[in-house]
Structures are given as C-alpha cells and as structure tokens.
Nucleic acid binder design. Structure first.
Lengths: 110, 110
DNA sequence: GATCAATACATAAGTGATTTATGCATTAGA
DNA sequence: TCTAATGCATAAATCACTTATGTATTGATC
C-alpha cells in the first residue's frame, strides 16, 4: 500500500462508485472488493469506512437493509437515486482532478 | 477550483515537481506557476505553502537563498540532491496511485 | 496623493477526514 | 483450542490544510 496521504478525500468516491458497479454490498464486502480491485494497494480501514457509510446514508445517498446470516449480521448498502447522481459526479470530479494534476506535474496518464 | 479534498497530500509533490521543472523559485512565484499550469484550478494558499516549504527545507530536500528586490524580500527555494530524488519518487508514487484508482473506479485516464 | 490590488513573507487557531485503538460477537480452519 | 477471518461499531488522537490575521512594499487608478 502506497502513501495513504493521497487517498485522503477519495473514500466517498470509491464507496459510491463501487456500489454503483456492484449493486448492494455490505461494509466488509466493500473492503474486500476494493482490496481486490486495487491489487492489495488500497486497504480501507473500518474506522474510516463505517463512519463514511453512516454519513452517506444520513445524507440520503445510500439506503440500508440489514440481513441475518445465521447469527451474524450484515448491513447492506445500496445507492439511492441521488446517490447514483453523486457517484457519477464524484467520479467525474476525480477524473478532472487527475487531468489537472497531470498538467501541473507534467506527466502522461495512460 | 474543484473540491479541495482531493488535493490533500499532493502539496509536497506539486512543490517538489514544480521546483524540479523550473529551477529555483520563491513562494509567491510557486503559487502563480501552479495557478497557471492548472489553468486556475489549483490555488495554493499561503497558509499551506509556507509551512510546507519550511518543512521540506528542514528535511533537507530544499535549500534557500534570500534575495532583496529593492526593499522587498524574496526567499528562493531550490531542490537539494536528496530533494531531486524525492521529487522523482513522489511523482512516481502519484502516477502509481492514479493507476490504482483507475482500476478501482474503472475509469480510463488519457 | 489616496486608495485598492498585487506582491511577498509569516504564524496561529480551527477544522475535519482519516488513523489508531478498542470493543463485541460469530464462524472457519489448523 | 486457539488463531484468523468475518462483521459491526465508536472514540480519541493525528495531521495536513483552511481560515484568519499580521506586516510591509510596489504599482495602478481616480
């Protein structure tokens, strides 16, 4: 995992986009999916993820559904309609940011 | 200027790379160059820049030279040898980060 | 010749996302 | 039977950065 400094501010974008691509997921599942997609480079910590999920839910971007698997609980999160819009906007914003950084750092992204 | 959240953690990388590309520069000049390169999207604040410069200097990555222009003072910063190495590493790290994020967000950067 | 914007540095308090630490509980594997 | 993995959650601490403030010079505008 590379310097976590750069990761700041990307958590919500990641969560929203992953949920958009994979449909409803529970917290732990998100951490695993992101770990997979990033080839082990991005490891979401629970202390960051759960509060983020709660916040997105409070903002109406996510809806929840709690399911019991045996005696274990899973809390599924899914995008609401505004959540889908936000997901798109956040990704676009990120791409924009990358383009700008590319100009400043004079690097080619491909 | 887009959401400043994403900018977090990139300040040192920007400063190091800009100094690498343009040689010695003073603080205010850096803010202007970055503004230019980013087409007005990235506006470095003095409250962030000056402490960052001082920190990089304290770490031995930058050397300084104070010059008087009339009665006004300019403090020029330049990369030291370790600073040049760091500049390269930081940029590489950023490119790496972008690639990883591209995978997670499933976006093409070009 | 006064006033405002730009130039040029600097520091300190406050913010806020994230890390680190901790807690509880179930399930699978060695 | 003990450890790792699964699964949730919260609270304190950290730390980069924003916002606010301060000082001073220079150029432009009216």
């Amino acid at each position: 995992m590379h310097s976590p400094e750069l990761l700041k501010g990307t958590l919500q974008t990641i969560v929203l986009k992953v949920l958009k691509d994979h449909g409803k997921m529970y917290g732990y599942e998100i951490t695993q999916r992101v770990k997979e997609l990033s080839d082990g480079h991005i490891l979401l910590t629970e202390g960051a993820l759960y509060p983020a999920l709660h916040k997105l839910e409070a903002e109406g971007l996510l809806s929840t559904e709690t399911v019991s698997i045996g005696k274990r609980i899973r809390k599924y999160y899914a995008l609401t309609s505004p959540g889908k819009v936000q997901a798109k906007e956040r990704v676009a914003e990120f791409v924009d940011f990358i383009q700008t950084m590319g100009s400043v750092l004079q690097v080619k992204l491909n």
